[in-house]
Design a binder for these strands. Sequence first.
DNA 1: TTGTCTGCAAAGCGTTTGCATTTCG
DNA 2: CGAAATGCAAACGCTTTGCAGACAA
Lengths: 166, 166
Amino acid sequence: MGGPIKGRTHRQLRIDLNKTMIASVNHPPLATPLADRLTAAGLRLTAPRRAVATVLETSETHLAPAEVLERARAICPDLGRATVYRTIDALVRIGALRPLYLGDGPEQRFALAEGGHHHLVCAACGTVVEFDDCPLGDLETTLAARTGFRIHGHLLELFGRCPACA
Amino acid sequence: MGGPIKGRTHRQLRIDLNKTMIASVNHPPLATPLADRLTAAGLRLTAPRRAVATVLETSETHLAPAEVLERARAICPDLGRATVYRTIDALVRIGALRPLYLGDGPEQRFALAEGGHHHLVCAACGTVVEFDDCPLGDLETTLAARTGFRIHGHLLELFGRCPACA
DNA sequence: TTGTCTGCAAAGCGTTTGCATTTCG
DNA sequence: CGAAATGCAAACGCTTTGCAGACAA
């Protein structure tokens, strides 16, 4: 039977490759608060939205809607599921948040759109190693000029097998 | 009301940046047939699996399970939904296929794991521009050496707004 | 032959929607 | 005050699972 893809857990490690990395350090995002992004986009800033924004901004990992709901309820107890989805939708459309897929279940996960996200994903066990630096500054510039896109950030996922699964 | 993220369609364009691109051309994957990968992994090669593998290999775009089912039925008429999901699961776990998210609906999409996939995604309308070259060869090598991962391929998604939506 | 794989249909569950009410501006 | 946003709960639709039969090796 097709094995349980679900068996894979959502683990995230973080490594610092500064010493061995190429160049062009990508400093962490300035993290203009998501709340500001909402108002700047002409959307109303409500308590539920503020709670969702705060959770997304302060999380160390890439959250799924259910996790956002759970954590945000600590700030805004009456928060409803639907509002979480709707707020995330809004943030994605404004370009403040971006969807991503880490391969450990059918739920969607999100990350701040600003800056870059770099993952090393194990196809077998779902382990995700995150690293901070990457040499994509030039590419972003080139592509922006060439295509007319306004680029907010990027996601780089290297896919393979971790030492334990290889 | 939270706008319909669904309103965004799954469009894919393709551009050739050879002329303006940096260097390090990433030649297309050798595409060891997916069917071979299955047998190599000790899995049985059945007609349904062969059909799914063929569809995934020959598609120009990144398919969702429902699309794979539809197309594969042209080859294997009795193919069932469950088998498509199970086969995709198997392919992901052996590292031949990789999940990805393009932001235009809740369904998962997949791409061959070998080689690279490079997208320029518009946060507003969901348009995806695909490009073929990227300068990540060195990074893959460095990371593989540093982390012990065996890297099959990568996904690079630049997130922003297309000219029309900006 | 035998354990794997398949199709079917039901179950599961993450996401979306309708609507009356509340809230921001 | 008027439009936008919210919560609830039902509706949806994609994905997974149980099982008996079919099939690769």
